[in-house]
Amino acid sequence: MTKLLEVQNLKTYFFTDRGVATAVDDVSFSLDAGKTLCIVGESGCGKSVTALSIMRLIPEPPGRIVGGRIFFEGTDLLTLSENRMRSIRGNKISMIFQEPMTSLNPVFRVGDQIAEVLELHENMKGPEAMDRAVELLRMVGIPSPESRIKDYPHQMSGGMRQRVMIAMALACNPKLIIADEPTTALDVTIQAQILELMDELSRTTGTAILLITHDLGVVAETAQHVVVMYAGRVVEEAPVKQLFHDPLHPYTRGLMRSIPSMSDDQRRRLEAIPGVVPSLLALPVGCKFNDRCRHAFDRCRAEEPPLTAPKDGHSVRCWLFH
């Protein structure tokens, strides 16, 4: 069976005056229909650039996809014309961003914005598209959708706007939804509602979800499979339970230890990862994590480790497991 999405050796670089930033460097992963894959990492690790590369939305220049393939339903998206790509975007693959206020158009009513997607991709006419927009808003749990479709984005709360974004993303029954930090700007009670909604949608419609987040709690609650990124590389990849039970990479372990526990009342020190996330323009030689890693030895400072799979379905980029 072919995978719904298969990213192979993706390289997206940014060519700046101060040098080349290897934002995404040799990243591979795949995703099946109906599943949720989380890409987790800190700011600048390349998780959002990976998402934008799949959508072919990298601003060019300064960015450019310099290598790799992105197979979606067996077709390499990187070989498609801009026209063909446009018919896939918002139709078969749709995207949800972190801040719904900046991704909705403030001067159009939300109903018209959803209807526009339907008119463009599904050849629906005005009233028919409006009816479907109402139906979609009801599906994402917006109360009295018949009147809310006449709202402008500013008349809605943050949680409501994110629901509108999800409704819009669902408009064409996409095969894949890419959600880039979809709940980061929301309060926890609203975040729980949105995550629940996305989970329900993927179970009922078979839509695959690529969820990008920095929050390990969100990962644990949504993903079946997890990719951990650091400085543009995949450093670890595993099924979610395996990753949390037996994290291998020192970076993944560090991340897990640095979040305060919800079941521990001791005021102990957290085990922080020392140092800072490195600049993509000045990455260390060898393993990109070596300057913050307490296990680093000479080889780590000389040579970058390859991604290997010491266990079935669990891969890691670290000399400790080589």
Partner: peptide, 20 residues
Amino acid sequence: AAPIADPDRKKQRQGLTGDL
């Protein structure tokens, strides 16, 4: 509602409805 970094934890979210 607070997400917890433990994939084995049973999700027993009845959750709050509605916005603040």
